[in-house]
Amino acid sequence: MLATPASEGDRGVKILVVDDYPTMRRIVRNLLDQIGFKDVEEAGNGAEAFEKIKVSRYDMVISDWNMEPMTGLELLKHVRADAALSKTPFIMVTAESKTENVIAAKQAGASQYIVKPFTAETLKAKIASVVG
């Protein structure tokens, strides 16, 4: 269990976790729960995520990259292109770890970039840096 008290993270923050692997969604959800984020929803790809984002407002998106039919990078571009959503913090969590990937995500407007496999501490630190 992480050292952070359960009350620290949650400030009514609603998070969308996007990954095509249910195991990864469950890992991220568990870590978020431990650091106090209880309001978490899931989507299995970029297209499903974007449908949810359009209907319901999220305070943060944590997304994988390599998914079909819509990738995390495309989802990020859609979110940044939509005036109502463009400020949403967006953390990319991906196995794509080449320099060109990191640069492309940064240029597309990702708030943070986490390489899989990651530690609980890394996820916590990156969330803290985008939630402030």
Binding site: T71, L73, E74, S97, K98, T99, K116
Partner: peptide, 26 residues
């Protein structure tokens, strides 16, 4: 193209970066 960026996991020998190197870039 975006599709050319879908490499999947890369070892360090294949040019994959660790979290610290990613943070430095980011």
């Amino acid at each position: 193209s975006d599709a050319a960026l879908l490499n999947g996991p890369s070892s360090s020998a294949e040019g994959g970066l660790g979290q610290n190197a990613v943070d430095d870039l980011f």
